[in-house]
Design a binder for these strands. Structure first.
Lengths: 145, 145
DNA sequence: ATTGCAGATGCGAAAATTTGCAACTACGAC
DNA sequence: GTCGTAGTTGCAAATTTTCGCATCTGCAAT
């Protein structure tokens, strides 16, 4: 069983079409450890099937993101990147605006916020794969010198 | 005194250059009530000064966003939009993924999260103008029918 | 007021992303 | 299995966004 099989099940249950292209994009992203740009996803998918178009990759990552099985990482001055949203390892990112260091934040840490938005505004918020910007401990020290 | 004067002060204090182009982009965004796309900002700026280039507007909104005086609103299927971050009215957005309804969430509501990220990870996070996706009360009801 | 220069701008060109559309296909109904 | 169709895809073209670079300018120092 491949590591993206759970995501595939999730798509099946949502009643959306599971095309070979979608499966390949999913595979490329789930079998990568880091964050892939669209271009990198395209390269990897083309190794599996050479005629998959770049525009299909664009449409597919958008689709998979909306389905919640991949996450988008959008940092100023860098290409947009995508990563797997693995079951049980859902997380967010915090990036240091000074040095670029990035840490993962467990989804549970945003549970309080989620509850607040529910009780106060009635919104059921999908807190999936946020990217927050801030300053890491080291850069905070540097700055205060 | 114009409504963006406080933002201008903030830029001065940061020691960054205050060019006419930056002031005009700031003015266009602060004098608009809603959210403007880059194209719309460009149109308004050109009415003040016809030779301001579109690429300058792109660079300027990126800059002003990083300075924290304007906020970016990025919704799937819509052009990126920018709005003023007015002192004392800092807020975030929650958008309903079903009907598109959007509400503002006061910055204070994220105070707890901010403290958690500080104590747990040591990050001083800049919680400015986030956009969260979820479901509004009405659509939650519709769905459960 | 003048000077020096790091950083900003305008312009053209390149790169990234989206879109229109005819052909194709996953998948539910039979 | 076959059929029908709504939803996808590949391709080409349009559009949006970024970038390189020569020139220009805000502003701190004098």
């Amino acid at each position: 069983m491949s590591c993206e099989s759970r995501a595939i099940d999730q798509l099946r249950e949502s009643g959306v079409r599971l095309t070979p292209q979608r499966a390949m994009v999913l595979e490329a992203i789930y079998h990568s450890d880091g964050h892939l740009s669209v271009e990198e996803v395209h390269e990897r998918v083309q190794q599996l099937s050479p005629y998959v178009d770049l525009s299909t990759v664009y449409r597919t990552v958008m689709f998979l993101k909306q389905q919640g099985v991949i996450g988008e990482l959008r940092l100023d001055g860098q290409p947009v990147r995508y990563e797997a949203v693995r079951f049980g390892q859902e997380h967010h990112h915090v990036v240091c605006s000074s040095c670029g260091a990035m840490i993962d934040v467990a989804s549970d840490d945003l549970e309080t916020l989620s509850e607040l938005l529910d009780t106060k505004y009635g919104f059921e918020v999908n807190l999936v794969h946020l990217t927050l910007v801030g300053q890491c401990p080291a850069c905070r020290n540097d700055q205060s010198r």
